[in-house]
Design a protein around this nucleic acid. Structure first.
Lengths: 211, 211
DNA sequence: GTCTATAACGGGATAGAC
DNA sequence: GTCTATCCCGTTATAGAC
């Protein structure tokens, strides 16, 4: 199974670099100094490769999202948690640079993508609940549902947003900026502590970015 | 110039129905009972057609965004304003169903898309300013910038979000839901009035949806 | 301005030798 | 498992008739 993994590794790299649409199965074969026929022996085209890559992503995302967040309490914990999620997404960024496209083109992928979305939603819900229990935030029930939607949307479209805006930020910088953007959405529901939390977040962001 | 317009009309319809990627120049010609060669006489391929369609969109968007919003004061005015913007986007929805893709594929479009983005940003900024002047909302300067980002992001990715979520809502329903989602993001900054405004918005949304 | 016909290209996919 | 050779197909693009 070594060739199979080599194919997946190089495909992920190329897809992230050039975008999924820019590459044909033949391009991938060329990058591996491999004949198209040989590639087709392992994967019957681009689609199964993408499916296999999504499998990898799914697995790692499940570990992150279903694992740790019982331990997420402080703002700093939350920061790290969101950072890890975004980093994982960044490793498979070609899925996110044009979600709509992929979901439209590969219906099988759409289903699985929605499952990941649901996992994100549950994780956020659970983290918010912890914050509420500790009286670190309080929010109207209706607004809470909308907030979760917004946060899921942020986790899903931050890379597209960056593409559209055309700001040419490095990966780590983009991730830090997005963590901040994510966290700031929670601040207004932190009541009197909000102001202090905001300052801490901005300070933390400054540190991270200048590092 | 009549054939030219017929081409643009049918292209817009088809792109919205099937997606930009799903259609070739030949498909468009077929839909018009026209030979591919004839189509190429008017537009040298798909790209110039898309550029021309974006020109239409740009023009109408500029009228909406730069025009009315001096008159936007009450919550109801805002609701209508956002509704009109979303409706216009919906008319050219193929641009928005996978923004990342189009922007990546047609660099010329990217620039123009960013201009529209900037127009949206200015319009939102200006509306928020009005609300602030009337003491209908108050918001920390740093959070304000983030809020505007979030609102622009909502206006840009609501259609992609719908595609990804796979909820099969009708156009008008989707637009109403999105207006609500947009407006709810402002509520937390309305202070004591927030609760009442929230109820009014939800009530309005119920009316709109059941109509 | 509109049409038909056709050339040129590239990707997807497979057969069969090694 | 890997390779070469090849076929099929849809898209792009142009030449030239009407």
């Amino acid at each position: 199974m070594k060739t199979r993994d080599r194919i997946l590794d190089i495909s992920l790299t190329l897809f992230n670099q050039e975008g999924e649409a820019a590459l044909s199965a033949v391009d991938i074969a060329n990058a591996l100094d491999m004949s198209p026929g040989n590639l087709y022996y392992h994967f019957k085209g681009k689609e199964p490769i993408i499916e296999a890559l999504f499998g990898r992503f799914e697995d790692e995302m499940a570990i992150i999202l279903n694992g740790t967040h019982g331990a997420v309490e402080s703002i700093e914990d939350n920061w790290v948690f969101v950072y890890i999620v975004l980093e994982e997404i960044y490793d498979f960024r070609f899925f996110y640079r044009n979600v709509g496209e992929l979901v439209g083109q590969y219906p099988a992928l759409a289903k699985r993508f929605r499952k990941v979305l649901a996992m994100k939603r549950r994780a956020i819900d659970s983290v918010l609940s912890v914050l509420e229990q500790r009286n670190m935030m309080s929010i109207d029930k209706r607004l809470r549902a909308a907030l979760i939607d917004q946060l899921v949307s942020t986790l899903t479209f931050w890379l597209s947003f960056d593409v559209v805006e055309g700001t040419d930020r490095s990966g780590p910088r983009l991730i830090h900026d997005t963590v901040l953007r994510f966290m700031l959405q929670i601040v207004p529901y932190m009541g009197a502590d909000g102001q202090a939390v905001l300052e801490r977040m901005l300070e933390r962001h400054r540190q991270m970015v200048s590092a």
